[in-house]
Amino acid sequence: MPELLAVCRVFALLPDAGTVGVTAIDKRPVAGRVKVRPYGLYADVQADRKDHGGLDQAVYAYSQEDAEAWGAELGYEVTPGLFGENLRTRGLEVSRAVIGERWHVGTALLEVTQPRTPCQTFARRLGSPPQWVRRFADANRTGAYLRVLENGDLGAGDAIEVVHRPAHGVTVADWFGAWNRLDGAPDAADAAKALLVADAGDELRLSDELRERAERALQR
């Protein structure tokens, strides 16, 4: 059974060279149970609320397996929270989750909404490895944002149960690869059509950002 290795929330706001001037990417594991509400974990924050957070990006999950792959490439351990994630998982292919997939974690119900798009704040957090944003994108191990369908609480050691997986089959990695035209990715128009049809048929509810991009993908 997949499990939750760590629950992470902001440790401190850090100065940042971006337009906001500060970043809340410094997430670190916390002990005990943590409440989850529509806008994310209790006591967590986002400094850049224009591009992060909100109902469709309330929680960010990243897998231990992907973290270990990056650790081997970077030459140091990618500890829980280092990538700014709230949930570090094990035994679950987070980047290969189907968009709209639902997870029961602790007493909360979460739904996969979209991939993470890497930014320069992320690169600066890691000390600006060469071409980090491009490397992270090309690897297509983005992790996944989730919305909160049912409030609850969760903690390290909780099982993660996938309780619903939409039939459209488009994964987080499929969409990220298609939108960014990565080698081997599905055709963006095909992926977009599948997602929009599923959304129209109430199989899932697309985030505003993903719906807008899917509509654009049909036109380009």
Rank of each mutant, 00 (worst) to 15 (best):
Gln64Ala: 13
Tyr62Asp: 03
Gln64Leu: 14
Leu55Gln: 09
Glu65Ala: 13
Glu73Asn: 13
Ala72Ile: 13
Lys50Gln: 07
Glu65His: 09
Asp66Phe: 04
Ala61Cys: 10
Phe83Val: 01
Leu55Gly: 09
His52Tyr: 11
Leu74Asn: 06
Gly71Asp: 05
Gln57Ala: 09
Ala69Arg: 12
Ser63Trp: 02
Glu65Gln: 13
Gly81Pro: 07
Ala67Pro: 08
Asp51Tyr: 04
Gly71His: 08
Glu68Asn: 14
Leu55His: 10
Lys50Glu: 07
Tyr76Ala: 11
Glu65Val: 07
Gly71Cys: 09
Gly84Pro: 01
Lys50Trp: 01
Gln64Thr: 12
His52Lys: 07
Asp66Glu: 15
Ala61Arg: 01
Tyr76Arg: 15
Ala67Arg: 05
Asp66Thr: 12
Tyr76Cys: 07
Gly84Glu: 01
Glu65Ser: 07
His52Pro: 02
Gly53Ser: 08
Gln64Gly: 08
Ser63Gly: 14
Pro80Trp: 10
Asp66Val: 07
Gly75Arg: 13
Ala58Glu: 05
Glu77Leu: 14
Tyr76Pro: 03
Glu77Gln: 14
Tyr76Gly: 04
Val78Leu: 11
Gln57Ser: 06
Ala69Tyr: 10
Glu68Pro: 08
Asp56Gln: 12
Ala72Ser: 15
Ala67Thr: 06
Tyr76Val: 05
Gly54Arg: 10
Phe83Asp: 00
Val78Asn: 04
Gly84His: 00
Ala72Arg: 15
Glu65Thr: 05
Ala69Asn: 09
Tyr62Gly: 03
Ser63Lys: 05
